[in-house]
């Protein structure tokens, strides 16, 4: 059963800001500094009302042996929104993503503590059905990794594994998934050709089609465009904006402008800690934490 958390809002976390970190605000309480509410041009991420929480993260910590990769992360990932994780290499964002669909089960020394709750499902419990979890939480990797099979079989592979379907049902599902991934028109006449013959951008969209074919509720994307040219990147970004209507999306990216373009919310990680999170618009125009400011402006990392 799904647990909904009405009125859950993405919290603005500024866990590392010392009191002296925001002297300008502190010293000027007398000035009313609210933006006008009646703006005619409402920023994208603020057009939509807050949604319920899809993934609740509380006091989450993750280790590789004795090395602590993530420390005390508390964050709500809202449903049907795009949340981007940004931060320099080694800050723990990919580790976090890997814990959300339990890919770290394959790493014997990996362990974690705290709460990772997907609509009431305890992601850290030993009893959690990992196969079912991975159906609910799809993953798209940095490098497109289609199976060395036909385009059709790539998309049909998951549904055949999870569900009992007739041929025509699989046909239908493959078509719908490829349409949703914006690939159908390009491949409909060569579905039986090898997926490895597609371009990098097409392969990545095929991987997205493969991920959504099994009916997930959440998509995790680990730098999905870093191996793609600008045109393919733009297509994937358009696709992310479309998929947002149906899925909760978390995207890890090193491309600041990509995070700014596609995400509603942004979380900045540094050295295993969540430094700041909030509306993407705010994070890129007026971050509260000096470390976030330094990172998004390219001063370090």
């Amino acid at each position: 059963m799904r647990t909904h958390h009405p009125s859950a809002e993405f919290p603005r976390v500024d866990s590392h800001a010392a009191p002296s970190a925001t002297p300008m605000h502190a010293s000027s309480p007398e000035i009313v500094v609210k933006r006008p509410n009646a703006s005619l041009f409402v920023p994208r991420s603020k057009t939509s009302a807050p949604t319920s929480t899809a993934l609740t993260v509380a006091n989450f910590g993750a280790w590789y042996g004795t090395f602590q990769a993530l420390c005390d992360i508390t964050l709500n990932i809202p449903q049907n929104r795009v949340t981007s994780f940004i931060g320099p290499s080694g800050c723990g964002k990919s580790t976090f993503l890997r814990w959300i669909n339990r890919m770290n089960d394959l790493v014997p020394i990996a362990h974690a503590s705290g709460t990772l709750d997907l609509h009431g499902l305890d992601l850290l419990s030993r009893n959690t059905d990992v196969v079912d979890l991975r159906r609910r939480v799809g993953m798209v990797f940095q490098k497109p990794n289609p199976f060395p099979k036909s385009i059709y079989d790539n998309v049909a592979f998951g549904p055949r594994l999870h569900f009992k379907l007739s041929h025509s049902q699989v046909d239908d599902l493959v078509e719908r998934s490829l349409v949703a991934a914006g690939l159908w028109n390009e491949v409909k006449d060569r579905l039986r050709n090898s997926a490895l013959g597609l371009s990098g951008g097409q392969q990545q969209r095929l991987c997205i089609a493969r991920a959504i074919a099994v009916g997930p509720e959440m998509l995790l994307m680990d730098e999905p465009c870093s191996a793609l040219d600008p045109k393919s990147t733009a297509r994937i970004e358009d696709l992310i904006r479309e998929l947002r209507e149906r899925y909760t999306i978390i995207i890890v990216t090193h491309n600041m402008h990509q995070a700014a373009r596609v995400s509603d919310l942004t979380a900045f990680f540094y050295e295993g800690r969540l430094i700041e999170s909030g509306h993407t618009d705010d994070m890129f125009t007026n971050p509260k934490n000096p470390q976030t400011e330094d990172y998004v402006t390219g001063r370090f990392g």
Partner: peptide, 15 residues
């Protein structure tokens, strides 16, 4: 300095 938009809010009223 701090990202605040104070235009259109009269200084004398906010003090």
């Amino acid at each position: 300095v701090d990202g605040s938009v104070v235009r259109h809010s009269r200084a004398s009223r906010t003090h």
